[in-house]
Amino acid sequence: MGIQFFGEFLIERWVVTRGQLIEALELQEYRNLKFGELAVRRGFMTPDQVREVNELQRSTDLRFGDLAVAKGMLTPEKAREILTYQKNNYLMLGEALLELGHISEDVLERELAIFQEEQARYRVVEEVAMPEALPAAELLRAAVDLTRKLFLRVAGITVKVAAGRDADGAPEGEFHLSVGVRFTGSPQVQYVLSVSSEIAVEVASRILGQDATRESEEMVEDAVKEFTNLVCGNTAAALAQQGKDVEISPPETLPAVPAPAPGSRLVVFPLHVTEGALDLRFRLEDA
C-alpha cells in the first residue's frame, strides 16, 4: 500500500471502476483551475508571464504564486485573493465522484475513514530534529521518518533516529553497502543509505520472504536497492501530497559512504539499531 492518493486507494479496492475514476479526474481538472489560469482570467497576469513563471518553476521549489510575487508580476494581495478562491472552490475527488453519481455518500464516508486510518501509518511526524537553515527540510524530514517506518514495517527492524547534523567525516561502524537515490528539485538532494552486512541480509530476507544468508551478493544488493527505492518513492508521494512534485532516479550502488566535499552540504542522521550498523545521509548540491 504505502502512501497513496485517494483515487488509487478507491480503485485498488475496486470501489469505483477505472473509467469512473478517470471521468472524476477529468472533472477535477476542468473545474480546478490552476493559479496561472485564474491570474490571467482576472487580468492580473498576461499569458506570457504565466509561461515565464512555469518555466522558472522547473528549477525552483517555490510555488507559482510565491514566484510570481517574487518576480514582481503580482502583488501579495492579489496572490492571496487567488489562493483563497482556489481553496474555497476546490473540487475534491470524492465530491467529483459524488457529483457524477459514481459513489454514494455512505460509501464515500466509509472509504474516506478507512483511507485516513491506513494513511495515518505513514504520516510524517515532526519529531526528527533538523539542523538549522536547512534547504529542502520537508523532503529530508519525510525521508528520515519513512526510513524509520519502513524499516519496521518491511524489515521488522526498530530504528532510532538521532538529531540531524552536518557531517564532519566518515561514519563509525562497518558498512557493507551504500545505495543512493537522487531527488530532482532545488537543491538536488541525494539520499544515501549505508548498511552493514547483517542489516543487508535481514532486509533481503524480509523482502524475499525467506532466509537470504545464502543468497547471491547481487540478490542481497538488489533487495537493499528495492528497499531504498520504496523509501524514496514514498517520500516523493508524501511531497506530492503537499503539492510538491519531485522525481527520483533509480537506486545506484555507491563506492563508499559519501564524505564531506566542496560544492555540497552533507547532512547525517545517526540511526541506531540493536544489531549491525546503519547510516543515513543526504547530499545537498550547491547548498
Partner: peptide, 10 residues
C-alpha cells in the same frame, strides 16, 4: 513502488 505518483498511474 512510487506510491501516489498519480499521473503515471492515471
Amino acid at each position: 513502488s512510487v506510491g501516489g505518483v498519480g499521473s503515471q498511474a492515471e
